[in-house]
Amino acid sequence: MPTETLPDLLTGLTLSAILFCLGLIGLLVRRNVIYLLMCVEICTNAAALAFVVAGAHWDSSDGQVMFIFIITLAAAEVAIALALVLQFFRRRHTVDIDQLNGLRG
């Protein structure tokens, strides 16, 4: 069922790029671990958007399959990451990611 021409590949990808970059800015600027996680979600979501848009453009179900995998990944990642955040907060009583630098050389 062909739809209208407007939501096309390029605009969709552009949106995805903009969202990804916004998420990236957040990752670079924020120091609170919770926000970082949100920004990661934004980025993965942007990537997922790109997959879906491309899938729609090429008439392929692979884009949505990938979306499903991404969403699975995101779920697992958030679960683990939030658990880690909880541990981190319990031990350090802070959510500052810059305090988490025990692996410095």
């Binding site: 069922m1 062909p2 739809t3 021409t5 939501p7 096309d8 590949l9 390029l10 899938g55 729609a56 453009h57 090429w58 008439d59 392929s60 179900s61 884009g63 949505q64």
Partner: peptide
């Protein structure tokens, strides 16, 4: 860019 979007 002018190609249609497909329903999946």
């Amino acid at each position: 860019s002018a190609q249609r979007i497909h329903y999946i």
